[in-house]
Design a protein around this nucleic acid. Sequence first.
DNA 1: CTGAAAGCGCTTACAG
DNA 2: CTGAAAGCGCTTACAG
Lengths: 332, 332
Amino acid sequence: MSSTISDIAKLAGVAKSTVSRFLNGGSVGEATRKKIEKAIKETGYTPNPFAQSLKAKKTNIIGTIVPRLDSYAASQTLIGIDEQLKEMNYQMLISNTSQSLEREIESIYSFANQKLAGIILLATEITDKHIQAFEAVNIPVLLIGQEHKEFHSLIHDDYHAGYEMGQYVLEKGYRNIAYLGVTEKDIAVGVKRKQGFKQAISEGPECQVHYYETEFNIPAAQASAYKIIKESKPSIFVCATDNIALGVLKATYSEGLTIPKDLAITGFGGYEVTEIIHPSLTTAKFFYKEAGQTAAKHMVDLVNERPIEKLTISKYEIIERESVDTNSKHIL
Amino acid sequence: MSSTISDIAKLAGVAKSTVSRFLNGGSVGEATRKKIEKAIKETGYTPNPFAQSLKAKKTNIIGTIVPRLDSYAASQTLIGIDEQLKEMNYQMLISNTSQSLEREIESIYSFANQKLAGIILLATEITDKHIQAFEAVNIPVLLIGQEHKEFHSLIHDDYHAGYEMGQYVLEKGYRNIAYLGVTEKDIAVGVKRKQGFKQAISEGPECQVHYYETEFNIPAAQASAYKIIKESKPSIFVCATDNIALGVLKATYSEGLTIPKDLAITGFGGYEVTEIIHPSLTTAKFFYKEAGQTAAKHMVDLVNERPIEKLTISKYEIIERESVDTNSKHIL
DNA sequence: CTGAAAGCGCTTACAG
DNA sequence: CTGAAAGCGCTTACAG
């Protein structure tokens, strides 16, 4: 049976409030302190966090809402948040929504109801209901991955990653390009990356670019790739995510194409798997774990009402690997 | 400002206790029920879980301790646990220990202190300190992945997966085998899989098997593979995990070997990536998500003091893919 | 079926 | 520096 603050008070011969003050770092007399310390040691007492939270009406728990657990980006981001939060004596609570926007909304209210100190959302799409929920709950909110003018957010530099990827592809001599993107509902992945890429193309030499749209999953990307290969015979696929690139790669295996000689491929993300596969994938790497750490710091700042920038942009890096032919002598 | 049970009581014109009874499924009159329902709808009331837990002295939260977040097995298992728990109106709290056994111990005590209903541990190694902790905290415990005579556990059928893999390899005509395993501290992966495999070999035709030990990560496996290829020129690598198989695969790329003609490879796990790579990997698939679901059910049984088997064994399946030559006409 | 009251373990003004 | 008292939001016997 675990003991309560009353037990300690009785054992130490003081009042409960004195024990509480001691526990919370208030000033207590030397003699009192010793008696309390002794009583705590004897009983192995630890405060009941529920009772604490009930009064304090606030916890040191940060709720993190994540659309899925089985993605490299998600798990790395979570690891970053978790590590940083631990270091700052906060705890992370994860809510996995299995890609249901509705569950995201529920989680927001549920977290607020549990009196969490703040909410971090690994965002995919911000709907009106999200905005409503954020405004209704009275706790700090931080978005990761998508920006929104009303809320604090941390995003990856999708635009410039797209821009630099465009320049890179042109520089390597590719002129017949298939850009395989995703829905524009996803501002970061569907809009920003493409915008950056388009900008680079518009500044570069004459070339042919076809824009396509597919789903985030590998089989869908694979199916799209088959069609596009037949249709427009591109010399390179610029894919909006590494997973899509993986789908394209699978398509090229079964079509008997050689990468990068017959067809080049690039991705975005820098997922671990892109280095394991053969040929390895040229991609724009984002720093998920670091982004998670930064987000955690910012969240704690928000909780403690320290001012932070509304928008923070995390860096990226183009990783050259085997899926693009780097011999720029030719024009393809 | 979120409302309390008193607000609802006032709004509905009934007593707090009546609202509480309604909330907990007790019997209330038709008219009362309607009034309460209306009040709840109007205010969007949800009970404060801290107050609930304070009284009930028990939560409906199951703590899950996981060595790492960035592994296929871990995330699938978590997803399974989470889904099942939600369905049963329990919540999952994740503690990521970043592969520190010490942190696992800390988490056990911390979960107990937070009055969680139970603890699920995705186990790698059970030390004396684990046993001490489990015995000290007075809440149900369930191990996943490793068995222990004193505690409830759910394991994958490592022994028989190893056994069937052994039979499979022999049946396909391989006679010069390198078994690339891991430390025997890991009973499930390091001992059981190997034992099963050895048993099959001992029952089969004359053949040469060399046993090696490597680390769980890809680069280490890759380095081991280089050495072994030079040393013993095996016709097949039987790897104790998919990640190890991935490392071997990387080694074969750079050695210019063709899979499966020059060298065959098998793994254990059934990680998603094994299907994406080319050639795809023949492996013994485990059902992580299903195992997680079963574990969740069992945990809830334990919490409610319903009897369950001490040991549950989850199934497996050998998945034939491209990394093994299935033309058994030859002997290699 | 319904309500008044006590209590869960803590914290927080308020006196002293 | 210390203590008595009220209260956080709920649940649980106990009457009625």
